[in-house]
Structure formats: C-alpha cells, structure tokens
Design a binder for these strands. Sequence first.
DNA 1: CTTGACTTTGAAGTTACTTCAAGGTTGATC
DNA 2: GATCAACCTTGAAGTAACTTCAAAGTCAAG
Lengths: 136, 136
Amino acid sequence: MFTIAQAARRAGCPASTIRYYERVRLLPSARRGTNGYRYYEVADIERLAFVNRARQLGFSIDAVADLLRLADHPHSPCDGVDTLIATQLHSVEKRIRQLQTLAARLRQLQSACDGEHPIRECGILAALSDTRWNEA
Amino acid sequence: MFTIAQAARRAGCPASTIRYYERVRLLPSARRGTNGYRYYEVADIERLAFVNRARQLGFSIDAVADLLRLADHPHSPCDGVDTLIATQLHSVEKRIRQLQTLAARLRQLQSACDGEHPIRECGILAALSDTRWNEA
DNA sequence: CTTGACTTTGAAGTTACTTCAAGGTTGATC
DNA sequence: GATCAACCTTGAAGTAACTTCAAAGTCAAG
Ligand SMILES: [Zn+2]
Ligand SMILES: [Zn+2]
Ligand SMILES: [Zn+2]
Ligand SMILES: [Zn+2]
C-alpha cells in the first residue's frame, strides 16, 4: 500500500492531480486509512499511469474515461479504441496545421522589420494595424 | 458613433468579447450615452481590430497589451515589437514540435491494431497499459 | 516530545472567454 | 399609444484541467 505521494511518484504526476482525478470521478475513490489518508495499491497505480499516458497523448478527461471504460470490457470489439485514437490523431493534425499557418504569418511579419528604426516606421506594427491584414 | 454590436461586426468579434476586453483593461472604458450604452468611434474600432488580429496570431492578452503600449510610443525603437514577435514565433514552433511528437506516437499506436479483434487483444490498449511505454 | 514531512478539506486562482438571467432602451409597426 | 423584436446593461457562473492556498490533523525520526 502506498500513500498518495508515493503513488504520485510512481505514476509520474503530482498528488494534487490524483485528488483531482478522484474528484471528477475519472478514478474511483481511493481506500482510506483510519487516519483519513488515501492508500493505493499496485493496480490503482497502474490505472493512474494509464490515465497519465493517455493525457500525455492529448486526450481529454472525457476521452480518457472512455478509454478506461473500453479497457474494462475486454470482450467487446476494439473498434471504439481505434476510433478514439483516430479522432485524437485528426484533432492533433488539425491543430498542427493551424499552428503552421500561424507560424507562417508570424515569419511574414518578422520579414517586415529589420530592427533598426523607431516604432512609427516599424513594418510589423504597420501590418498589424492594417485593415487588409486579414486577407493575407 | 457605433453601438457595441456594430463595433463588434466591424471588428470581427462578439460584443461579449469587447465587454470582456474592457473589463480586463485591455481596452479603455468606452464612452457611454445617457442610456448607459457604450458607443464607439472609428479609432476605437481600429484598436479593437488590432487586438483581434494579434489574438489571432496567438498572442496572450498580456502580450497584446504590450503590443498596444509599444504602438502608443512611436518614437521608441522597435526592438520590443520584434522581440515579442520572435518570442511568439518560438513558442508556436515549440508547440508544433510537441504536437508532432504526439502525432507520431498516435500513429505508432494506430499501427498496433488492425481493428478485427476483441479489446483484450488490442495492441493499442496493450501499449497504453505498458509501463515501458513512456520510454518510446 | 519536538520537528519536519506528510496528509486532509474546501475554496480560489489560472486563461480567455461565453452564457445566462433579469431587466432597461430603441425603433418600427399597428 | 401599445406592442414587439432587437438591442443594451450588469454581475455571476460555466468552460478545461489543473494548481495553489490556508488551516488543521498525522506520522516517523531523533
Ligand atoms: Zn524594422
Ligand atoms: Zn520593427
Ligand atoms: Zn487491432
Ligand atoms: Zn484495437
């Protein structure tokens, strides 16, 4: 049995996060000692680590809950899992494309200034102040 | 003079956002009519549009406030502007790299499943449940 | 038995808004 | 003049996923 700090160290997240996951029902309520402390065993910590890995992949709390439910039904077909992964991958790819557009615009702005003049003549601020900027 | 909805339409953001920007002091308090309504003129709307363009580039509210302050000092050198742009570009690029790592991992997970078996044998959940997964 | 490191709780802070409720104003129509 | 839709006002609460805080209880070592 491990205290919350020990579980946190093993799972690789702060103790506050574990309490949070319990509060929002992503994880079941932990067993308690007579002192009121939460105690975890290995299986609990593995489940927590699963959650952390999924979160690191960018899944929302709700999506992680879905993954956990699926993992708890070993006899169902795995389409649901595959769909969740595919959906997440698509949303990550979409976000990447958005950010690449952003980066391109920022680089374009950067090229509007050589850094050697007062703000009044700065091409960056001029571009940002330009109504037609959106159309770029 | 324009009402808040007219200003919003011209600047390209909801009226609620304008009120919000005023509340957090990103924009100065608007002039008020005797009815209590906010009224805007062209210069106000241009400033608002500037803010919206900067926000679309991913700048935080604080960074936009910095940009506005810089734009209000036309005689200062423009280093500050250039630095803000560069910083923002770097953080966008960093985020893109993080998301690309994420996407690669998700694709790797996807390749662990052909979609034709029960969850118990799903390579995706097996990978997510694997303690050594982090090391990949 | 004191000290320091741990634990508990509920509440508030974070970011950038959006949504809501309850009520006042405006302008057009009947 | 009444009515109606479409505006406007405010403060508060909701969103996502935590983190931080304060106040207080617990534990293990020396
Ligand atoms: Zn320049
Ligand atoms: Zn410049
Ligand atoms: Zn498969
Ligand atoms: Zn599968």
